[in-house]
Amino acid sequence: MFREDGISRGPLEGLIVCPVCDATYQLQRPKNGERAVCTRCHKVLIAPRRKAGMQIIAVAVAVVVLITAASVFPFLEISAAGRSNAVSIIDAALSFTQGPMLVLALMTAGFILFVPLVRMLLTLYVLIPVVLDRPPARHAIRAFRWAEAMRPWSMAEIFALGCAVALVKVAGLATVSFGPAFWMFGALVVLVIVHDSFLCKWSVWNSLEHPKER
C-alpha cells in the first residue's frame, strides 16, 4: 500500500518510538482494554478501548452543553445584611477589568471556558468522521494537534477547587450558597477526566493516517 505522497509503508512503519525516552519497539497493537506500555519509562503508548470513539463523542457533547449552561447560570451566591450578589463564571472571569487586569480577565475566561470548549469541539470534529468510517475531515490532523496542545491549559478542575477555597474565605464575611452552575461544573470536571482517559492518542493518529483499516 502506498500513500499519496509516495512514502511506502516501509519497515519504519512497523515501529513505535516512545516520545519520552526514545526506546523503539516493534509495533504490536494491544487488544481492546489492554495497554502497550514502554518498558523503559513506563509511559502508556497505546491504550485502545472498545467503542471508545462513540463514548468520547457522547462525553464531548455533554461537556459542550454543560460548559455553555454553566457559564451563564450563577455558581455562587452571597448575601449579607440584606444585600446579595449572584455571579456566573463569566462574571468571575470578567472581574479583572482595570488596565492590564483585562489581559488577566481574558486569560481566566480562556482557561476555564474557552479552552475546554474548543478542545471538545475539535475532538468532535476529528472523531465523528472516524467513527462513522468516513474519510477524515479537512484539516483533521491540525485540529487534533491543537486539541492535544490545549490539554494542559484546560483548567476547569482547578477552577472547581478554587470555588471551594473562595467559599471558605468569604464564609466569615457573609453567607454563601452554591448556585446551579456549581453542580454543573462538578459534573464537567468528571466528564473531562473521563474524556482524557478514554482518548488513545495513538489510535486517533493511526486512524487519521489509515482511515479504512480500523
Binding site: L76, I78, A80, A81, R83, N85, V87, D91, A92, A93, L94, S95, F96, L104, A105, T108, F111, I112, M155, I158, F159, L161, G162, C163, V165, A166, K169, V170, L173, A174, V176
Partner: peptide
C-alpha cells in the same frame, strides 16, 4: 493557577456596595 481563580471569584462575588 488556583490562587488566581480564587481572586477572580472573590472579586466578582464580593461586590456588596457599602
Amino acid at each position: 493557577m488556583i490562587d488566581i481563580f480564587v481572586v477572580a471569584i472573590l472579586s466578582a462575588l464580593v461586590q456588596l456596595k457599602g
